[in-house]
Computed example of a mutant assay.
Amino acid sequence: MIQIKEIPSKETYIVRQPVLRKGKPIESCIFEGDDLDTTHHFGLFDNENLTGIISLFKQINTTFAEKNQAQIRGMAVLETHQKKGFGEALVKYCEEYCIEENVDLIWFNARTAAVGFYKKMNYQTIGEAFDIKDVGEHSLMFKKL
């Protein structure tokens, strides 16, 4: 059985590290703003085991005119559980949460390898791909709600 619920930032590290920061110290899994009151972390549990995570930050990107924006960061599903719709479930959960909170636009920096995944959910790229030091090539993506 799959369940998505809010979790503390520290609980995200056990998924962030092997998926997003492989071979790097656990400290690299701590993101600026993780513990702000306006930041929310959601975990996807498969039979009570945390297998996927997504974090939602109240963050304005000046590329967009919308006043109420949210940034997705640290979206990850354990390798053993990928290609099962869990990532899509996490993104949709965030979208529904954002709609309830009157957020106008979701944006994020997507790894190049994940751009196709997000395009299937109607996210669009804007601008050129760019490199994030020690992480790799990314594209800015967004969706108006």
Score class of each variant (00 low, 15 high):
L140F: 07
T112D: 11
Q71K: 15
I99E: 07
G116A: 11
G136V: 11
V135L: 14
I54E: 04
F117Q: 03
V91Y: 00
G116Q: 07
Y97G: 01
N61R: 09
Q71T: 03
N49K: 15
N61E: 14
L78W: 03
E95D: 02
H138Q: 11
N102P: 01
G33H: 08
I72N: 01
A76M: 03
K84V: 00
V91A: 05
W107C: 03
V103N: 02
H81M: 07
V91I: 14
G127P: 11
G74V: 01
I132L: 15
T112N: 09
A113Q: 07
L50R: 08
T51H: 02
S139W: 09
D34E: 07
T62V: 14
I132A: 09
Q59V: 01
I60C: 06
N68T: 12
S55G: 12
W107I: 07
G74I: 01
L90Y: 03
F64C: 08
S55A: 14
G116V: 01
I126D: 08
L44E: 04
I106T: 00
D131R: 06
F130T: 14
F42D: 05
T39G: 07
F130C: 12
H81E: 12
T62G: 02
A110G: 10
Y118I: 09
W107G: 04
L140P: 05
H41V: 09
F130E: 13
A70L: 07
S139A: 09
Q71M: 14
I60F: 06
V103W: 01
L140V: 15
T80G: 04
F45I: 06
A114D: 04
N47K: 11
A65C: 10
T80Q: 13
L105D: 03
Y97N: 05
L56Q: 00
M75D: 00
A129M: 10
T38S: 15
I54G: 05
K67G: 06
V115S: 07
R73P: 02
E95Q: 13
Y97R: 09
N122V: 00
K133E: 15
L36C: 08
H81N: 11
D37W: 02
D134S: 14
G85N: 05
K92M: 09
L44H: 04
E95H: 02
L44S: 07
I53V: 15
C94M: 02
K84G: 00
K83V: 00
R111M: 04
G43F: 08
V103F: 03
E95N: 01
G74Q: 09
L50M: 08
G127L: 12
K67Q: 14
F130H: 12
D46S: 11
W107P: 04
N68K: 15
G74Y: 06
